[in-house]
Design a protein around this nucleic acid. Structure first.
Ligand SMILES: [Mn+2]
Length: 202
DNA sequence: CCATTCACATAGCT
DNA sequence: AAGCTATGTGAATG
């Protein structure tokens, strides 16, 4: 009984398809991760976009901030925004992540999930901006949230990874084409989580 | 023009 | 019977 509970709480699916993703907890220690979380929340140029359906204006349920090399412009729905210039912290993290990813990234999208009501729906990352087989490195700070993937052709084929404070999730080149991912809302009370997704913008 | 993208409300299922 | 999923919605986009 005890073990079952503990195992369930761990929340990692068995048999994760490691050719599609890799998960590495504890890439950054707790103290360092705490500081990064605080600093990114306080200092990143957070934006919240919106979409209109009928007459309702629906705010996207998370905040985003975009950093990167000059020329890696990212089109938000409705407007084009230049990325903010790299900060020393982001460059330091990038330098740690790149050898583990086998890729030199030129941009990073930060996502700020303020509480359990923030989320991102099932999607694949944009082929038009990233190409068909992008490698994306995702660093998590703050609250543990569940990252789900499902096969586009068979929604019953699903896996889940708990993204822990200071962890790295590597989305490998095969993931986006045939799989979708999400961060679901949670009924349980959730504290803030900031996610750094390093990418190569084409 | 037309397909795609996004979050939400709702209906239907177990 | 609470919790999950598929579906329709429509403005903006390329
Ligand atoms: Mn994504």
């Amino acid at each position: 009984m005890e073990q079952l509970t503990l195992f369930a709480a761990a929340g990692q699916s068995k048999g994760l398809p490691t050719h599609l993703l890799d998960y590495r907890p504890g890439l950054f220690c707790t103290a360092e991760s705490d500081e990064y979380l605080r600093k990114f929340i306080a200092e990143a140029p957070w934006k919240q976009t919106a979409l209109k359906i009928k007459d309702k204006e629906i705010a996207t349920p998370r905040l985003t901030a975009w950093y990167g090399d000059l020329g890696t412009d990212y089109s938000h729905p409705g407007r084009i925004s230049n990325p903010a210039p790299w900060t020393p912290e982001l460059l330091k993290i990038k330098a740690i992540v790149e050898p583990l990813s086998g890729v030199k990234f030129n941009s990073v999208l930060l996502n700020y999930y303020r509480d359990g009501n923030d989320s991102v729906a099932w999607h694949s990352d944009k082929e038009s901006i990233l190409g068909k087989h992008p490698v994306i490195a995702s660093i998590s700070f703050g609250e543990v949230r569940s990252f789900d993937i499902r096969n586009k052709a068979d929604h019953l084929e699903k896996y889940s990874v708990r993204l822990e404070h200071g962890s790295l999730l590597l989305m490998k080149s095969g993931l986006q084409e045939h799989w979708e991912h999400r961060i679901a809302k949670s009924v349980q009370p959730m504290k803030a989580r900031v996610n750094l997704t390093f990418r190569v913008v084409i």
